[in-house]
Amino acid sequence: MRSPRTRGRSGRPLSLLLALLCALRAKVCGASGQFELEILSMQNVNGELQNGNCCGGARNPGDRKCTRDECDTYFKVCLKEYQSRVTAGGPCSFGSGSTPVIGGNTFNLKASRGNDRNRIVLPFSFAWPRSYTLLVEAWDSSNDTVQPDSIIEKASHSGMINPSRQWQTLKQNTGVAHFEYQIRVTCDDYYYGFGCNKFCRPRDDFFGHYACDQNGNKTCMEGWMGPECNRAICRQGCSPKHGSCKLPGDCRCQYGWQGLYCDKCIPHPGCVHGICNEPWQCLCETNWGGQLCDKDLNYCGTHQPCLNGGTCSNTGPDKYQCSCPEGYSGPNCEIA
């Protein structure tokens, strides 16, 4: 077999650049994923090309098998939009790539799955459409700058595939050579959905506090709520009108309100015997008056200043008058 000629994957630097851009600016990249293909086995019993010639040398006159050299087999892949009637021409609109030389006439790579040499990765940054057309071609490398490479066999497949970690196996069982391969579509990290176009990256910072479920939905951490999980859940009972919080379990009062639940107004400074319904009010309790509710309107009842059976009459805020019984006098009937 001729010395292998290595063929790198098509578009790999571009895919790395796209992945970097997506990581830095995830909101700009609407989708991100990759179409993967792995060659599993190849069977070319006679070492022939599609045109019937030998990959190298002439045929044995007896059994008609190619004798001089085995094929240097590598694969090309073209991925494009779905076609009900597949045409070989036209651009590979979803991507293209190739393997290096991975074997001779016949080989089996099932035991070495995950080997990069027999895998082609086609990254995409558009919403995966699920339906596709795939062209797979086996080629013989001439290892010659003058002699062109020659095609051994080709296969085409049109179908639908959803993103999954599971592989789907396909076979080419007609023509001079048979080969088996597997395909799958996977979303990149933080991308979800059938189109790999739903973005969700767990975070716990100013912009949100959430994890992501298997469908890419945000699940808020304990103590947080809202579409972006950036609204803290305040202390139970915290007034929704007069209290708020920036951290879970907190209850910060608005100006003019106080209390554990921010449901108590702050009265006017200096208010003595008054209450409030709104901040800075001083609504006097019964029998109290004045701007600060510090004037006693029922001095008689509060202090009972009249002595010796005198009768007390309220005459104004903090004022009274005693009517003394016979034989007593003085402001409080204290003089006998």
Score class of each variant (00 low, 15 high):
2 R>G: 10
3 S>T: 15
12 R>L: 15
12 R>H: 13
18 L>F: 10
19 A>P: 03
20 L>M: 15
21 L>P: 00
21 L>H: 10
21 L>V: 00
22 C>W: 04
26 A>G: 02
26 A>S: 14
26 A>D: 05
31 A>P: 02
32 S>T: 06
34 Q>K: 08
34 Q>R: 08
36 E>D: 02
36 E>Q: 01
41 S>T: 04
42 M>T: 03
42 M>V: 01
43 Q>L: 09
43 Q>P: 01
44 N>T: 06
46 N>D: 03
47 G>A: 01
48 E>G: 06
49 L>P: 06
50 Q>P: 02
50 Q>L: 07
51 N>H: 03
51 N>D: 06
52 G>W: 12
53 N>Y: 15
56 G>D: 11
59 R>G: 10
59 R>Q: 10
60 N>H: 15
62 G>V: 15
64 R>L: 15
65 K>R: 15
65 K>M: 13
68 R>S: 07
69 D>N: 12
71 C>W: 15
71 C>F: 12
76 K>T: 10
79 L>I: 10
79 L>V: 14
82 Y>D: 12
82 Y>H: 15
85 R>P: 14
86 V>L: 04
87 T>M: 13
88 A>S: 12
88 A>V: 12
89 G>A: 10
90 G>E: 03
94 F>I: 09
95 G>V: 00
96 S>A: 06
98 S>C: 04
99 T>P: 06
100 P>S: 08
101 V>A: 13
102 I>T: 13
102 I>S: 06
102 I>N: 02
103 G>W: 09
104 G>S: 03
105 N>Y: 06
105 N>I: 06
107 F>C: 04
107 F>Y: 05
108 N>D: 12
110 K>N: 12
113 R>C: 06
114 G>S: 10
116 D>E: 05
116 D>V: 12
119 R>H: 12
120 I>L: 12
121 V>A: 06
121 V>G: 09
122 L>P: 05
127 A>T: 09
128 W>G: 04
130 R>S: 08
131 S>P: 13
132 Y>H: 09
132 Y>S: 08
135 L>I: 02
137 E>A: 12
139 W>S: 00
140 D>V: 07
141 S>T: 03
143 N>K: 05
145 T>I: 03
146 V>D: 07
146 V>A: 11
147 Q>L: 08
149 D>N: 07
150 S>C: 07
151 I>T: 12
152 I>T: 01
152 I>M: 09
152 I>S: 04
156 S>P: 09
156 S>Y: 03
157 H>Q: 06
158 S>T: 05
158 S>L: 12
160 M>K: 03
160 M>V: 07
160 M>I: 10
161 I>M: 03
161 I>S: 08
164 S>C: 13
165 R>Q: 05
165 R>G: 14
167 W>S: 00
168 Q>H: 12
169 T>S: 11
172 Q>P: 09
174 T>R: 08
175 G>S: 03
178 H>Y: 04
178 H>N: 06
179 F>Y: 07
183 I>M: 05
183 I>N: 00
184 R>C: 04
185 V>L: 08
191 Y>S: 09
191 Y>D: 01
192 Y>N: 03
193 G>S: 03
194 F>Y: 06
195 G>R: 09
199 F>S: 07
200 C>W: 03
202 P>A: 09
203 R>G: 12
205 D>A: 11
205 D>Y: 03
206 F>L: 13
206 F>I: 06
207 F>S: 07
207 F>C: 11
208 G>A: 07
209 H>N: 06
209 H>R: 10
210 Y>C: 12
213 D>E: 00
214 Q>R: 08
220 C>S: 01
223 G>R: 15
228 E>D: 11
229 C>G: 04
229 C>F: 00
230 N>H: 12
230 N>S: 13
230 N>D: 05
231 R>S: 06
236 Q>K: 05
237 G>S: 06
238 C>Y: 10
239 S>T: 05
241 K>E: 12
242 H>D: 15
242 H>Y: 05
242 H>R: 14
242 H>Q: 11
243 G>V: 08
244 S>T: 02
245 C>Y: 11
246 K>R: 13
246 K>N: 09
246 K>T: 08
247 L>P: 09
248 P>T: 08
250 D>E: 09
251 C>G: 14
257 W>R: 05
258 Q>P: 02
258 Q>H: 09
261 Y>N: 03
263 D>E: 11
266 I>T: 05
267 P>A: 11
271 C>S: 00
271 C>F: 00
274 G>C: 00
275 I>N: 00
275 I>M: 00
277 N>Y: 00
281 Q>L: 04
282 C>G: 00
285 E>V: 00
285 E>G: 04
286 T>I: 00
288 W>R: 04
291 Q>H: 05
294 D>A: 04
296 D>V: 02
297 L>H: 09
297 L>V: 10
300 C>W: 02
300 C>R: 01
301 G>W: 02
302 T>S: 13
303 H>Q: 07
303 H>R: 12
303 H>P: 03
304 Q>K: 04
305 P>S: 14
306 C>W: 01
307 L>P: 04
307 L>F: 15
308 N>T: 10
308 N>K: 10
308 N>I: 14
310 G>A: 07
311 T>S: 11
313 S>R: 07
313 S>G: 12
314 N>T: 09
314 N>K: 00
316 G>C: 13
320 Y>N: 11
320 Y>S: 09
320 Y>C: 06
321 Q>L: 13
322 C>W: 01
323 S>T: 05
324 C>W: 03
325 P>R: 14
328 Y>H: 03
330 G>V: 14
332 N>K: 09
332 N>I: 13
335 I>V: 11
335 I>M: 14
335 I>N: 08
